[in-house]
């Protein structure tokens, strides 16, 4: 019994490594494929940020089953905090990351402590409300955040004095951040913490009965998820040089949710692929029609009805079924 679980785990983590390698290879090949097309590299960079954001929501929803309808709150929070800090404190990216993460952990810990005590629907509603509050905050402090116009004139990010200028460098940083985040998510998934989260997702009452501190575990998941989202916001604002309140709008939360649902909740790779596919699709669709929100909404509805596991979820199920046969065959040999 133990032997099968171990081999199963090895198979799965090998699957994770293969996935990581594929994403790394694809990501590394792209700059060569897009040589001479600077716009393509830019689009890919935005897709990478979207992928980190999608992964951050999957860290919460996929792990503990808590559904956040206002994840843009933390994305925007990170973007604004990092933007304001880089204008006032330092433009060093390492300093900014540390300070922004500290701020996010502090605020998300305080808010999350109340939020994660709520179950299902109340949690969903409150997360949506939270994002609206963050949206409103931008306008309350419009003299420092720029209000409707957005936060402009963010100095170029530096790393120990060296300016990060070229799009290729940015692309490498973003790809590196995504790969690190993915590796972290995969590691946690198989670590005791990740196992405990899955137990909560499947049945939080049983998890409590076997002695888990469900509230604390949910809070940890919420804070990690918020931090990763805020990191995505930080990367966005430094890469983009400006940010607008649109980042905090519920449409943005809807998009993040769409990445995760499209890719398959809890599949780790699914949301990342969903984010990339969706960002590219959004770009090409919105170039020939401005009614893309209709297609987007209709697709959302359709996926929830037809393929609740998402596109990647369906593929992953088939893959699991295939790999589940392999150990048996090996045992027979």
């Amino acid at each position: 019994m133990i032997a099968t679980t171990l081999s199963e785990r090895r198979v799965r983590s090998r699957g994770g490594l293969v996935g990581l390698a594929v994403i790394a290879a694809t990501g590394l090949c792209l700059p060569f494929a897009s040589a001479g097309q600077p716009f393509l590299l830019m689009l890919a960079s935005h897709a990478l940020i979207a992928a980190i954001l999608a992964l951050s929501l999957d860290m919460l929803t996929g792990n503990t089953g808590l559904l956040s309808f206002g994840h843009a709150a933390w994305y925007g929070f990170g973007a604004y905090v990092a933007g304001l800090l880089s204008k006032s404190v330092s433009s060093d990216i390492a300093v900014l990351i540390l300070l922004t993460l500290a701020a996010t952990l502090l605020v998300s810990g305080a808010v999350g402590a109340i939020l994660v005590r709520q179950v299902g629907k109340t949690f969903a509603i409150l997360t949506l409300a939270l994002s609206q509050i963050m949206f409103a905050l931008v306008f309350v402090f419009s003299d420092i955040t720029g209000g409707e116009d957005g936060l402009q004139g963010i100095p170029m990010a530096t790393f120990f004095g060296a300016q990060i200028v070229s799009p290729a460098t940015w692309y490498a940083i973003l790809l590196g951040a995504l790969l690190l985040a993915l590796a972290g998510a995969l590691h946690i998934r198989h670590a005791p913490l990740g196992r405990a989260w899955l137990a909560i997702r499947e049945n939080s009452e049983r998890a409590r009965f076997i002695g888990m501190n469900v509230t604390l575990l949910k809070l940890i998941s919420y804070m990690i998820s918020a931090s990763l989202a805020s990191l995505a916001g930080l990367l966005f604002v430094l890469f983009n040089g400006a940010t607008s309140p649109d980042l905090l709008h519920w449409l943005e939360s809807g998009k993040v949710l769409m990445y995760v649902v499209l890719g398959g909740v809890g599949t780790i790779f699914g949301p990342v692929i969903g984010a990339v596919v969706f960002t590219l699709a959004e770009h090409y669709v919105s170039s020939f029609t401005d009614a893309w929100l209709i297609y987007f909404g209709a697709l959302f509805v359709l996926i929830v009805i037809v393929a609740p596991g998402g596109l990647f979820g369906g593929a992953a199920r088939i893959a699991t079924r295939l790999s589940a046969r392999k150990p048996g065959r090996r045992a027979a040999q």
Binding site: G65, A124, I294, F296, G297, A298, F300, V301
Partner: peptide, 24 residues
């Protein structure tokens, strides 16, 4: 008869869809 999560996602998608139509 689907889990609660699906109904939340579905009405959220509907909100996007209706908003998109109203925009047009």
């Amino acid at each position: 008869d689907r889990p609660m999560v699906d109904s939340l996602l579905l009405t959220f998608g509907l909100a996007l869809l209706i908003t998109g139509i109203l925009y047009e």
